[in-house]
């Protein structure tokens, strides 16, 4: 495992920790899109189907379990926890996320590495992850007062994607047989979605003003 990959996984983990901190400790999910969180839970469920079939490493298994458990518990908190769910900004989180699922499934049936159940589900999870941030970005645009933890959560998620691209470039030169075009193309699309957010996040940090995205 190279340094970019490890750093990418760690920022991904950090984003989850930041979100859980906000939800568990502050008991607030204000500014967080339940739609995006539901899509992530679906992404991990579809991608980690081989969790108990193919053993890669202890690291791999533990991280998969962490992402599965955290994504489903976040959805549970936002839907069921009697304090947290009251802070959910339902009126602004209106992205029709179900309409992302079917096109991703159709694309996975058409473009996959092998036409098997697990490979189609893997491709589906890659496509869905690429667009899963959209409801969150839309909600941020509609949020007048983006708190620091929410901004940091999205920033770490975006950083994770940038680091994964650097990891692929590194692997391309060091492991020439390692080529997953599907995840590379989808990953680049996913990272580009953050470009706008990154711009405003860095500007607000540089100018020391509160983060706000133009509508």
């Amino acid at each position: 495992m190279n340094a970019f990959r490890l750093a990418g996984d760690m920022t991904h983990l950090l984003s989850v920790v930041v979100l859980l901190l906000k939800i568990h400790t502050i008991k607030s999910c204000a500014g967080i899109s339940l739609k995006t969180q539901e899509l992530y839970a679906l992404v991990f469920a579809a991608r980690y189907l081989d969790l108990f079939i193919h053993f890669i490493s202890l690291y791999n298994t533990v991280m998969k379990l962490v992402f599965l458990a955290s994504s489903f518990s976040i959805v549970w908190y936002m839907r069921r926890h009697k304090i947290v769910r009251r802070t959910y900004d339902k009126d602004h989180d209106t992205f029709r996320h179900h309409f992302l699922v079917l096109p991703c499934l159709a694309l996975a049936l058409l473009i996959n590495e092998r036409f098997t159940f697990r490979e189609v589900m893997w491709a589906f999870s890659i496509y869905l992850e690429a667009v899963a941030i959209l409801p969150q970005l839309v909600l941020l645009q509609r949020t007048r007062n983006i708190d620091n933890l929410t901004g940091q959560y999205v920033f770490f998620l975006g950083a994770y994607r940038v680091l994964y691209i650097l990891n692929w470039i590194y692997r391309y030169f060091t492991e020439p047989h390692f080529v997953h075009w599907i995840s590379w193309v989808a990953g680049i699309v996913q990272t580009l979605l953050y470009a706008d957010f990154f711009y405003y996040y860095i500007m607000s940090w540089k100018n020391n003003v509160k983060l706000e995205l133009p509508a």
Binding site: R5, D9, D50, I56, K64, E113, W122, H177, F178, H180
Partner: peptide, 10 residues
């Protein structure tokens, strides 16, 4: 092995 394309990423 070469060409194995194991999916070891998260």
């Amino acid at each position: 092995a070469a060409g194995d394309n194991v999916k070891d990423e998260l």
